[in-house]
Design a protein around this nucleic acid. Structure first.
Lengths: 345, 345
DNA sequence: TCGCCAACCGTAAACGTTTACGGTACTATG
DNA sequence: CATAGTACCGTAAACGTTTACGGTTGGCGA
């Protein structure tokens, strides 16, 4: 005799009643419910998830899909970790099990997702590294699997998403640099097709145009989102004949490598070139201090989780007015890295 | 009509035979097996995992537990990511689903593990961040849950483990530095109780003693395993009256912060202080180049997965002679950061 | 011809839940 | 007192598998 049966026998009531008591159903005497809960605690009873899953068709699991692998594992990871932390706290409230699904760089993300779904692994999913055109979204929508994405996509299937304000960052940074007299401004973008790269570069271009300037295609640097990428960008940038006087770094982690690349050439941010980037826990230890954008990743994670739950029938009533689509503004932390003032004219 | 039943009906054979055919049982005609497999592919049938789990008492999931959170998320994460990548490839061969269980810094790892186990989440576990005394090991052993650890522990319950050769690293580094005339040598260790810290520091101490020197307790620096920690160590070290002439960095990520801390004070590794550390994909972009230890994290992950499988009855026959306990030697990559030669005497 | 064995397959129970349905006892209402 | 309604509980089916067991067929040796 095991499981709920054992508990029922011990209490001398039916398993149906035990189940109802445990699941908070209304049609059970509060007195007996109390007895059941106490006995459950005493006997250390925990419901068998396979049994529940089989009966209910749900797994109680939420998956957070991330990519990993040689080229991508930069500090980009720590960004996801922090977000994950926020997501975790929300799901824990609902006793949902959150797991990270790490897609290896060796495997195609679409295939990976297909496997996960075929197996009926999770009740809901969170996707990151959203591509500009992302087949995963259509796939999930077709299967009617609740999901939310960290990052917008042109492939819009009505799912909730949260994203960072790349437009705002590009705009603010460009305005700021142009005001200080810069005209040749470089930007960076990720090496792959994640959507944020397009958004950022496009906005930078139009912000420049608004000032009567333009974005030199030769000054758009692609790189992996890690220190190595930043280093390479510095080397490449320094090898150009007509160097830019300022640069916008779209990723957090690359700043460290970029700084290093400059210093090897005897150059210094804020003196020889203006740098505006994004802050991570690490970048606060750069010197000269980085001028960059920052936000609470944990809060972002919390909002992301709530957005997903709001679209899941079983939980939506908890979040009647969750924001299903939101752009998170990042604050500019002023540092010394863009102190560089061009002689006007 | 759904699931295996539908498939059976479509083929006009019994569900028992279908199941046997799919699971590679011997007592089924190869001709019918072929038909079943073809039909399964055609109808896109995938067995319901809840049903299997309920019947077999296994989940087909392996969990890789990692810690995360504000203080820990340094590049330490990227280490685990690479290892995870290796682990993944092995489990994929056996159609086991590997997921990452990220324990938030907000939660006690012991409690977290207890929850995971109570829920019957996984058939096997991999633990990282092994503490010197780790209650998790006894807990899992008592529950008879197969697991392996990344890192040794004094709490030995006979589980397989893999670890890095911290003794060898400490010994090699100390010998090398002493040979070059150093006498005041500092070491770092993690801020928490992970076992590697003890191993590393102890070995460094005894290596020094073998040279008639000793490890000044004042020169043992604790830090979080990330850039910020390295930066703080540099600051702290520089504030000492009687500065060491060399330092051993036990973590990969702290080198970047440490370099930065030095350069702020106008100091340079390899000129003003000898530095020996450990390499990550990122540290290769440091300048002056880092002298440090390196290994293939992916291979480590592969071995770790195989060690675990070797202890699981259902898979052990695949790995008859897997190494259940192994210390992974790391190669020393010579750089410029320890070029510093003390004037003898 | 008979018996035996091997090869293959079907039947049905079992895994641990949840939940629709119906039943009982009691209360309130007329 | 009859009836309706409420509050609570028990029964049993259902979820989709796997697998022990037994049954049928055909071949083969004696």
């Amino acid at each position: 005799m095991t499981g709920i049966r054992r508990l029922a026998q011990h209490l001398d009531i039916s398993i149906g009643t035990v189940s109802r008591a445990l699941n908070g159903r209304p049609d059970v005497n509060e007195e007996t419910r109390k007895r059941v809960l106490e006995a459950a605690a005493e006997l250390g009873y925990v419901p068998n998830q396979s049994g529940r899953s089989l009966r209910q068709g749900t797994t109680n699991i939420i998956g957070f899909m991330m990519q990993t692998g040689a080229e991508i594992t930069g500090q980009g990871d720590t960004f996801f970790m922090s977000v994950f932390d926020g997501v975790q706290t929300v799901f824990a409230r609902h006793r949902l099990d959150l797991v990270a699904l790490l897609c290896s760089s060796q495997e195609d993300p679409d295939d990976y997702l297909r496997r996960v779904v075929a197996r009926g692994f999770a009740d809901g999913l969170i996707l990151s590294a959203t591509q500009r055109h992302d087949p995963r979204l259509e796939f999930l929508a077709k299967r009617k699997i609740p999901f939310a994405t960290l990052g917008r996509s042109l492939t819009d299937v009505g799912q909730p998403w949260l994203d960072l304000d790349f437009e705002g960052m590009a705009q603010t940074a460009i305005d700021r640099l142009v005001e200080r007299g810069h005209q040749r401004i470089a930007v960076t973008r990720p090496h792959d097709d994640v959507n944020l790269g397009y958004i950022f570069v496009d906005q930078a271009a139009s912000a420049l145009e608004a000032h009567g300037l333009f974005l030199d295609p030769d000054l758009i640097f692609r790189s992996t989102p890690n220190e190595a990428g930043g280093y390479r960008i510095a080397r490449e940038l320094l090898s150009k004949k007509d160097r830019p006087t300022a640069i916008l770094l779209v990723n957090e982690s690359i700043a460290i490598g970029f700084y290093r690349g400059l210093s090897e050439a005897g150059l210094k941010p804020g003196r020889d070139i203006a740098v505006i980037g994004r802050h991570s826990p690490q970048t606060h230890f750069l010197s000269p201090s980085l001028t960059g954008f920052e936000l609470s990743r944990r809060d972002l994670g919390i909002a992301l989780a709530e957005a997903l739950l709001a679209t899941m029938p079983a939980f939506s009533h908890f979040y009647p007015n969750a924001e299903l689509r939101k752009i998170w503004h990042e604050e500019l932390i002023e540092g010394e890295s863009d102190a560089f003032l061009l002689p006007h004219g």
